[in-house]
Amino acid sequence: MASFRYAFRDTFRLLFRHWGLSLLTLLTAASVLYILGFASLFAMNMRYMISRIEGALVVQAYMKRGETAEQALELVRSSPLVLSVRAISPEEALERLRAKLGNQAQAVTLLGENPLPWSLEIQVQRAEHITPLVRDLMVLPSIEEVLYAGKLVERLATISRASSAVSGIILMLTLLISTLVIFNTIRIAIYSRKEEIEVMLLIGATSTYISLPFVIQGMLLGAGGAILAIFGLWSTYSSAIEAIRSTLAFVDIIDNRRILAQFYVFLFAAGATTGWMCSWLAVHRFTSQSMRSR
């Protein structure tokens, strides 16, 4: 218990005795976490926009006359790529036609017997899932025709894949840069206390006792940097939402408070964890080297 008390006291000593370095670490952490958060928000919005478009994509499969939709429905339901499927009976299709024709609905009676076949309305999870699904449907003998926005689907699938790859790379890079920058800043802080740590090791301090204040310091600076980054992101993002709404009303961007709150909590946790991990690695490396007898 006393060790924890000393560790917290030493953490605050560290923070305030080397306040310039602490401030530098805090601002560095805030900057890199802001970039990380910005890249993540960009990636999330790209994914969101694409998924909105993808969600609106519907594949329509028409059965041959006299065929029911049972066989096709079974195949579609068993596919993991499918989000939802609905079978449309010839009667329902006729009703829809009537509704579409409005005051010219009487014209339908001229058709005599209902000529419309059974059909399926299928929604897939992602645009890239459409082409393999269509291929599977086309081989069924009961299927007459499958309608879908072919070129659009292919382009959307390409954009979706590219955006996932680009945002993944951006996230990995920013995460790597954040980790390296925080790790090195904390390493400088540790080297500024090199003499003190060496004396502590010589008089019998355990590496845990030595590491604890640095680890708490790293965690506090990481968390503090994350809070600053969250404030920055929150104000930037709020302004961006306002600007986009007033100029590009058709663009869908994430403004769900719950999703954004979860994202900010995640960023805070990422900051604290990165700070903790980087400082632990830096101090562990240093103490291991110092403890090694020559």
Binding site: A2, S3, Y6, R17, E195, E196, E198, V199, M200, L202, I203, G204, A205, T206, Y209
Partner: peptide, 22 residues
């Protein structure tokens, strides 16, 4: 190998603190 930032008391005390003594 005294720590220049610490007082005489702190230099002596920190050996005991490192051992987790109250």
């Amino acid at each position: 190998k005294l720590l220049p930032n610490l007082t005489v008391f702190e230099n002596v005390a920190f050996v005991l603190e490192a051992m987790g003594i109250p």
